[in-house]
Design a protein around this nucleic acid. Structure first.
Length: 580
DNA sequence: CCTAACATGATGATGACG
DNA sequence: CGTCATCATCATGTTAGG
């Protein structure tokens, strides 16, 4: 029950009523259900799973194969395997039971997701590859795609009835999470953790009307509602304000459904294909994205969109302020910088760098001239310079940035990504995929006075820890950090930074975001006492303009992981809205 | 010799803006 | 309609290590 005016005029200490900083020490906190239900009854759980998948229409053969080969996997992993098998066995041979597989790939997520609930007839199946499954199966698949476990989904189906909408089902699961949470904390009051429609009704009353109506609108609105103005990028791209240009707007009204806890902060490339940011915004509680170019914070451009529910008044940058021009950031280039190269800022730092061959070609082209080169040569050189972020390192000599220069430009400590078995290529890649620390820190700075005792952070797609570094440099203590990052190289970088900066808190790192289901999240929330901030920048490679091959939009293979950010954020919201 | 890891070079399209 | 920017992928060559 937030008070709806989180951006009120006062400085904030008494202004928020949902700060969870009342210190819950880990030592004192009951670590419930750690070794209990999850691992104890593996046998019965397997039979249950078996029946469950067979009930969904998969053949017994496939199901047992999938379960055996994924013994330690959860139901989502097994479902994934089943879908793979079914796809491979598409050739009709040994399917005794007619296995109707609703082949909802993640790339079809949104269409199906929305088609299913829009009032218009689903004239879908333009491809006509798969037969439409039964309504029940279809809902089941959608819930699975939304990230709920099949256990959760089937219980919800049982209790709510087959005619329940997916919106209702999803809310029921949320209610179940909350109810479970209550049981864990108050075992004497509710000895039977039975899920009932009653729980659902109760939770509904507890919840904000704003959340309910938002969820409804999410489920019924079409992807590109012609009534809505498509999002426009601001020019200049300064978001809700940057340190140099004094803040125009000091107040904004967040949709009620967006108000925390927890605070959340989501990031991705600003120049995504059409409609992507509309979708992202719609899923993240209709919060208007803040588009910011990091060129207002440092010597390199970085056009990014940020969706967050943070206050936007009293922001401050980290000190010392970083160099803001190329010549300040890279003084040694000053001597060789020709007057006709008028760049003062670098373009976006990417994951690849210019080749040696290219700089050689440029050198030869320039050597034909004594003084200023011809205009067409200048244009050619400048073009390549802008494309590859080349800098002048000698007479007629251009060079790509060194990894440690990229580190510095992005606001990371020197050698942050260096050593420990990390290749040069990996460094460029990890850095290119990272936050610009000063920019993110400016947005997160408002947390300092809200959480003087430090924060618990859930960091999804952490990369090399841009958010962690930002918070640390702001002087915000990190109490517990749960970090999810697929790349081992990156996890090592964050771990080693954590140790080298003598962090007092705990760093828990996970590799696979799929592992973070409702149960695991509940465990973690119990363990740390709730998350104050959920940050994440989900993969952009299917959105980025540089991608020649697979710029598939938000439904692309990697970029669709955005939906996992939403799933987890929504789960955290649900679990924590029950109160701690 | 083989393999795996690494480095290099070639490869447009989309969308905003003026 | 031109100018500009853009958290990249793929095939192939090269090197290090067994």
């Amino acid at each position: 029950m937030g008070n709806g005016e989180m951006d009120g005029s006062a400085a904030g200490d008494s202004d928020i009523d949902w700060n969870t900083e009342d210190e819950l020490e880990i030592e004192n906190y009951p670590v419930s259900s750690c070794s209990g239900e999850a691992s104890s009854s593996a046998g019965s759980s397997n039979t249950k799973l078996f029946d469950h998948f067979v009930g969904m229409g998969f053949s017994e053969k496939l199901v047992s194969k999938a379960i055996n080969e994924n013994e330690d996997g959860n139901s989502d992993v097994i479902l994934e395997a089943l879908l793979t098998y079914a796809a491979l066995e598409d050739s009709p041979q040994e399917q005794e039971t007619e296995t109707v597989v609703p082949n909802i790939s993640s790339s079809d997520y949104e269409e199906n997701f929305l088609d299913d609930f829009s009032d218009i007839d689903s004239n879908s199946d333009s491809e006509g590859i798969y037969e439409p499954a039964s309504e029940e199966e279809k809902k089941m698949m959608l819930l699975a795609e939304m990230g709920y476990t099949l256990d959760e989904a089937s219980i919800a189906m049982e209790r709510c009835g087959a005619s329940a909408s997916v919106a209702e089902l999803s809310d029921f699961i949320c209610a179940a999470q909350m109810s479970k949470e209550a049981d864990a904390l108050l075992p004497e009051e509710k000895p039977q953790p039975k899920l009932s429609v009653e729980d659902f009704q109760k939770s509904k009353k507890r919840k904000h009307g704003g959340y309910e109506s938002w969820k409804r609108s999410l489920l019924t609105k079409k992807p590109l509602d012609p009534d809505d103005e498509p999002l426009r990028l601001p020019n200049p791209m300064v978001g809700f304000g940057v340190p140099t240009e004094p803040c125009q707007q000091i107040h904004r009204n967040l949709p009620e459904a967006a108000i925390g806890p927890p605070y959340f902060y989501y990031e991705n490339v600003a120049l995504a294909p059409k409609g992507v940011w509309d979708t992202i915004s719609r899923f993240l509680y209709d919060v208007e994205p803040e588009f910011v170019d990091s060129k207002y914070f440092c010597a390199t451009a970085r056009k990014r969109g940020y969706v967050h529910n943070l206050p936007i008044h009293n922001r401050f940058p980290i000190r010392p302020l970083p160099p803001c021009t190329i010549s300040e950031a890279l003084p040694l280039t000053r001597k060789w910088w020709p007057s006709w190269d008028t760049r003062t800022k670098l373009n976006c730092l990417q994951t690849c760098i210019g080749s040696a061959k290219l700089t050689e070609r440029i050198r030869k082209a320039l050597e034909d001239y004594e003084g200023e080169p011809a205009l067409h040569v200048q244009n050619y050189v400048l073009n390549e310079c802008r494309k590859w972020n080349l800098v002048w390192v000698g007479r007629n000599k251009l060079a790509p940035l060194e990894p440690d220069e990229v580190e510095m430009l992005l606001g990371f400590p020197r050698n942050h990504t260096r050593g420990g078995g990390i290749s040069r290529t990996d460094r460029y890649k990890s850095l290119g995929n990272s936050f610009q620390v000063d920019t993110v820190a400016y947005h997160l700075s408002v947390l300092k006075e809200l959480f003087p005792g430090g924060i618990n952070l859930l960091s999804l797609f952490s990369g090399i820890g841009g958010a962690e570094v930002a918070l640390h440099r702001l002087g915000i203590p990190l109490k517990n950090v749960v970090s999810v990052e697929i790349s081992e190289v990156n996890r090592n970088i964050v771990r080693s930074w954590w140790e080298q900066t003598n962090q007092k808190g705990n760093l828990i790192d996970l590799a696979d975001i799929q592992e973070l289901n409702g149960d695991r999240l509940e465990q973690l929330i119990n363990l740390v006492g709730g998350f104050d901030l959920v940050v994440g920048g989900s993969p952009c490679n299917n959105l980025a303009g540089s991608n020649r091959h697979h710029r598939d939009g938000l439904e692309g293979k990697e970029s669709s992981l955005f939906y996992d950010y939403f799933r987890i954020l929504d789960l955290v919201k649900c679990i924590m809205s029950r109160g701690i």
